[in-house]
């Protein structure tokens, strides 16, 4: 915008460093891992013996997939940590909202009962 930019060499070096994204090799490796994880999810879904632990396994697998896409494809692992904060805080808040509503409605439906001793 301005022709009178106050140059900051530290910032420029910093900015260039953020441009260093991984190459196709890493992307292909991540794709392979995501494929395996998705296959594992589907497998877990169809194996009757795993039904009792279906929820924790699926949640962990989904979280790992989420982290791989966000970390490598969206470059959070490589980019400025500012982006991680920008995304991480709302994500945490979103999780708390989901958890809060689930607990409140579970109580409303009598699924979860709270008593004060």
């Amino acid at each position: 915008m301005s022709d009178h930019a106050i140059k900051n060499p530290h910032i420029e070096a910093h900015a260039v460093a953020h441009e260093e994204h991984p190459g196709p090799g890493v992307y292909l490796l991540v794709a392979a891992i995501l494929t395996v994880l998705t296959a594992a999810e589907i497998t877990v879904f169809y194996v009757p013996g795993l039904q009792p632990v279906l929820v924790p396994i699926l949640l962990v697998l989904a979280a790992v997939k989420f982290a791989f896409v966000a970390g490598f494809y969206m470059h959070l692992y490589y980019d400025s940590k500012v982006f991680t904060i920008f995304f991480g805080f709302p994500l945490l808040l979103a999780l708390l909202i989901v958890l809060g509503l689930l607990l409140l409605f579970a109580h409303l439906q009598g699924v979860l009962s709270f008593t004060i001793p």
Partner: peptide, 18 residues
């Protein structure tokens, strides 16, 4: 130039998207 002027050395458009 805009990047050098920015406080965090990050592009506004990318920050906005995040």
């Amino acid at each position: 130039e805009a990047l050098a002027e920015s406080t965090l050395g990050l592009d506004n458009r990318k920050l906005g998207m995040w």
